[in-house]
Amino acid sequence: MAEPTTGPTTGPTTGPTTGPTTGPTTGPTTGPAVETAAEPGAPLYCPANARTPEQVARMADLEARGVCLFCADAGSEVGGGDLVAETEHWRAVGNDFPYRGAAEHVLLVPRAHVTDVLDLGDVARAELWDVLRTVRGGSTGPYGLGMRNGPCEGTGGTIAHVHLHVLVPDGEQPLRMRFSSAR
């Protein structure tokens, strides 16, 4: 995986929005404008899909505070794992709860709070491939790329903020990706 990029580390406004918008949010921010397509009042987490009791506890705490883990600034107490790379529209962070069989597990997270990658603007969607290339660096080995779109209740995911999983196998066995967090 690539070394962290340099540049601004300020992020979007934090927390859930009050409803869908058709473009960037307005008002002062410390980073780029943030698009949102979240359903008002929809849960931020799906604890029934969690793999560990630690995930369930963390989700309960964040949900109670109305905090989306992926909307927080990178480096904050709720911003995800270690920052690997960032661009104007994306952050790449280590997964705090990596999948078994993965030597590396990085999450590509859009700064915009959306549940479907197609709800991102054209520039953000195009930039996804740039951040993936940065994360992969010069590596030519095998990796998996997985993404769930839509409400997490129906996808097997645990958070209502679209993100991609970049998984590098540990070499002991083929890395099998399932689109369900079923144990």
Rank of each mutant, 00 (worst) to 15 (best):
E39A: 12
G41F: 03
A37P: 03
G27Y: 11
G27E: 05
T18H: 04
A2M: 14
A48K: 12
G11N: 00
C46D: 10
A42Y: 15
T10W: 14
T29C: 15
T25A: 07
T14P: 03
T29E: 10
T10L: 12
T29S: 15
P24M: 06
N49E: 14
A33K: 10
C46F: 09
P28M: 12
G7I: 05
T9F: 01
T22H: 05
P16R: 06
V34K: 01
P12G: 04
Y45T: 05
T13L: 13
Y45S: 02
G19D: 05
G11T: 01
P40M: 03
E35V: 13
P20S: 12
A33F: 02
N49T: 13
E3T: 04
A48S: 13
T18A: 07
P20T: 05
T18C: 09
G19E: 04
A33I: 04
P20V: 07
A33N: 07
P8A: 13
G31M: 07
T10K: 14
T17G: 05
P24I: 05
G31V: 02
T10V: 09
P47T: 08
T29V: 15
E3I: 00
G41Q: 06
P24T: 11
T13W: 09
T29H: 15
G11W: 06
E39I: 04
T25L: 14
C46P: 02
P43S: 11
L44E: 00
G19R: 00
T29Q: 12
N49F: 08
A42G: 12
A37S: 11
Y45N: 04
P16T: 14
T30Q: 09
G15Y: 02
P40N: 09
P20C: 06
T17E: 10
T22M: 04
G41M: 02
P12L: 01
P12D: 02
P32S: 13
E39Y: 06
P40F: 08
G11I: 06
T18G: 10
C46K: 06
P8L: 14
A48Q: 14
T5P: 07
P20A: 06
T22K: 01
E39R: 10
P8T: 15
P8M: 07
T29K: 15
T10A: 11
G23P: 06
T17W: 02
G31S: 02
A2N: 14
G31N: 09
Y45A: 00
G27T: 01
